[in-house]
Design a protein around this nucleic acid. Structure first.
Length: 283
DNA sequence: AAGGCACCCAACCGCACACTA
DNA sequence: ATAGTGTGCGGTTGGGTGCCT
């Protein structure tokens, strides 16, 4: 689904996102949250409009997004919800954790619409047949349509799919490329660092056993995390505990003050610390 | 093998709503 | 009350992929 990259009048890029852009967006949002989508691309070093960034994050990059095949239960639920709600995709998506409204909408138009139409025509066929044959008709049991439950994770839990979320992206090496984030998780449960608020386990691991607090600052790390924190603090003028307290993505809507240095500048600094050939140094 | 076609889905667009000054 | 701004939603489109002839 590669749309040919192009640029609009104001020089903003359109079209398919590159892995590099994804990395920048993930890194920025997990770091600072989405305090203002309009301003975000400028600070994140992206030549995209805010709307495009938001869409990319919400529909593709954010943690816990399920990708892959729909279960029969999910499909039945979508059909049932669509009967009741119509094209209110975001409302329908609320009942399917991990699925985005866009994805559900696409799946509806490509697959479920036909099936739903087929079912309803079949049902109306049976219905008319029944109405003709009233002699041995019984009252039908009440429809369960009013009993809608949010699907439990089950085997298709976000965690199960989180890995495919990353690996199914345009560049399958993205997960590898993002492995530098491993280096930022803490060494012991209960300790926190700036990336603790990112559900790294949900994003990158399939096995719950290896999810939490498993990775250490690499031995070759030339500076301690405290130094990194201090540097970030000086850049952002934000209280250090801004990075240390949040535990979930939802809590990280950062901050009343915008970062004072560009994120690209920070990456320039952090680049040698993580000894990873990750970031474009040309930004 | 190659061309045509339908399917699928990421991404764009326009509009409406919410919020704030 | 109103204008400006940011965000969310639903409809639509562009183009890659795979199947069919």
């Amino acid at each position: 689904m590669v749309r040919t990259p192009s640029y609009d009048k104001s020089g903003l890029k359109k079209g398919t996102w590159t892995p590099e852009e994804d990395r920048k967006l993930i890194a920025y949002v997990t770091r600072y949250g989405c305090w203002n989508w309009r301003q975000l691309p400028r600070f994140a070093g992206l030549a995209r409009c805010g709307k495009s960034c938001r869409l990319r994050w919400m529909n593709y990059l954010r943690p816990n997004i399920k990708r892959g095949n729909y279960t029969p239960q999910e499909e039945d639920l979508i059909i049932k919800l669509h009967k009741e709600m119509g094209n209110r995709w975001s409302a329908i998506a609320a009942y399917l954790p991990g699925r985005t409204d866009n994805e559900i909408k696409n799946h509806w138009h490509t697959t479920l619409k036909k099936r739903s139409q087929h079912n309803s025509s079949t049902q109306s066929h049976h219905k008319s047949k029944r109405s003709k044959d009233t002699s041995n008709s019984k009252p039908h049991s009440a429809s369960s349509s009013s009993q809608i439950e949010i699907l439990d994770s089950g085997p298709l839990s976000p965690r199960s799919y989180s890995s495919s979320c990353i690996t199914s992206s345009a560049n399958s090496s993205l997960q590898d490329d993002l492995s530098f984030l491993d280096a930022l998780t803490v060494t012991e449960p209960g300790t926190q660092n700036l990336f603790t608020h990112l559900n790294l386990d949900d994003m990158f691991y399939d096995d719950p056993a290896e999810t939490i607090m498993s990775v250490q600052v690499p031995p070759h790390h030339p500076a301690g995390l405290e130094d990194a924190f201090a540097f970030q603090d000086s850049l952002s003028q934000a209280p250090l505990d801004t990075f240390l307290t949040g535990t979930q993505m939802a809590d990280v809507s950062y901050p009343p003050t915008q970062p004072q240095a560009s994120f690209a500048d920070e990456l320039e600094y952090l680049y040698p610390l993580y000894d990873m050939d990750l970031w474009s140094r040309s930004t």
